[in-house]
Design a binder for these strands. Structure first.
Length: 428
RNA sequence: GUGGAUGUAGCUCAGUGGUAGAGCCCCGGAUUGUGGCUCCGGUGGUCGUGGGUUCGAUCCCCAUCAUCCACCCCA
């Protein structure tokens, strides 16, 4: 055991039993994105370290202590991407996708953060990200929320998730609010815990997030971001909530909702669930109007969000929401008794796959008794087993045995087999 | 990164200071070529890893790795 090589901590294998569930989820995503007119973009999973430092923010937890950063053979500092937005903006800029045009993009793939693993939190995890560029109005913010809501609806998750909203205001308004907040905290510094004191100089907004009950009263009295919004952001947010109400989307305004990445401004939102314990955020995002410029582009507004695939799949499993149709099926299991029949079965299998393209046919390999082959046919989940032995070979017939229905075994001539199978498959 | 719990067969778990068991799974047989039920038999474990205490450790102690829970963070 000790000399066996193990997977890296917090990085998981996706096993055969699990992959159909992921594929089901991915199909839903692809379908959804097409319906809303979003195009897929794929970026490298490694970028220059500076990209993340500049976008996410030097003093955020992600950059300070969670990135997989290393020097490559040239001595350049590279980082395994901890999130997708920065790469997406970089790729869009680099390829001219933002030049005098709007974009609706999505992507999917692994992200890496060196955190302590827990259920729903892994060092390699997967996100589906959705980003839109070039649109200032709240309509695109609303579209993003509606799009995500439609996904919950399709997956059956809607009753189990809740939408939380907030506005961070413009960068100037947030800076002013930050000063007011720091003043409030400094006036009550006796109540601040150690974490919060540290954050006072780095990221005071995060103190609002604290779950420490000793600080609850002081936090309740803290100035509210909503009261410090600039006029433009206030109107933007008001229009956003009005449109959500018109669309019938329930939401809760959470004035303490802030984001761990520095690039956000104005709208921020989170979909959360109670069903996953402490890793209950299943989807989160917001507006980042300053990021494109910060990364060297012309001022271009952006909105986006990311979903945690592991968390969503965990949620689907916890709530038993994986539809039966998501599982792969086998229609036919082809058995063969004896060497001659085995050779013939291989060819027969290919001919049947040509003739009946929609059929899922599994060929028995590896010999064994008839009994054990039929046992395997049963285990495969196939509806029927095709039986090919010496008798059948001699008479040019194949046996069709029904494994899930009370029905007589059939004997069909080889040249009529494909047609018979088509008919049988059409029954279901 | 902090605190706590757990780690025994592929899976779910019993168990004891004298080097291990059940159920499920898997394989074979009862039924010379016919699954699901039943019965019988079998494969499979350096008891997470490395040290220590002991005549002797899977059990006690320490360390380490991994998983889980909470904090933290976030998707």
């Amino acid at each position: 055991m000790s000399n066996k090589i193990q997977a890296i901590r917090g990085m998981n294998d996706l096993l055969p039993e699990q992959s159909p569930v992921w594929q089901y989820f991915e199909r839903q995503i692809q379908h959804l994105m097409q319906r809303y007119g979003y195009s897929e973009i794929r970026m490298p999973i490694i970028e220059q370290t500076a990209l993340f430092k500049r976008s996410i923010g030097e003093v955020t937890d992600i950059v300070e202590k969670e990135m997989y950063t290393f020097d490559d053979r040239n001595g350049d500092s590279l980082t395994l991407r901890p999130e997708g937005t920065a790469s997406c903006v970089r790729a869009a800029l680099e390829n001219g996708l933002l030049y005098n045009q709007t974009q609706r993009l999505w992507y999917q793939g692994p992200m890496f953060r060196h955190e302590r693993p827990q259920k729903g939190r892994y060092r390699q995890f997967h996100q589906v990200g959705v980003e839109a560029y070039g649109m200032y109005g709240p309509d695109i913010d609303v579209e993003m929320i509606l799009l995500s809501a439609r996904l919950w609806e399709a997956l059956g998750l809607m009753p189990h998730v809740q939408l939380e909203l907030n506005s961070l205001g413009s960068n100037e308004a947030r800076a002013a609010y930050r000063d007011a907040l720091v003043a409030h905290f400094e006036a009550h510094s006796d109540v601040l815990d150690e974490d919060s004191r540290r954050r006072l100089s780095t990221n005071p907004l995060r103190i609002l997030d604290s779950k420490n009950p000793d600080m609850a009263a002081m936090l309740a009295d803290a100035p509210r971001l909503m009261d410090h919004l600039d006029e433009e952001s206030r109107v933007h947010f008001a229009e956003l909530t009005a449109m959500l109400e018109a669309a019938g989307i329930d939401y809760v305004i959470n004035p303490r909702l802030v984001r761990g990445l520095d690039y956000y401004s104005r709208t921020v939102f989170e979909w959360t669930t109670q069903a996953l314990g402490s890793q209950g955020t299943v989807c989160a995002g917001g507006r980042y109007d300053g990021l494109v410029e910060q990364l060297g582009g012309k001022p271009t507004p952006g909105v986006g969000f990311a979903m945690g695939v592991e968390r969503l799949i965990l949620l689907l499993e916890t709530l038993d929401l994986i539809p039966e149709a998501a599982r792969p099926r086998t229609d036919v299991y082809l058995t063969a008794m004896g060497d001659a029949a085995s050779r013939e079965a291989m060819l027969l299998g290919e001919r049947l796959r040509d003739a009946v393209p929609g059929m899922h046919l599994q060929l028995h390999c590896g010999g064994g008794s008839f009994k054990s082959q039929i046992k395997k046919a049963d285990k495969s989940g196939a509806r029927m087993a095709l039986l090919l032995g010496e008798d059948e070979l001699a008479s040019g017939q194949v046996g069709i045995k029904f494994l899930r229905e009370d029905r007589d075994q059939e004997s069909v001539a080889l040249d009529a087999l494909a047609a018979r199978l088509k008919t049988l498959l059409a029954e279901a």
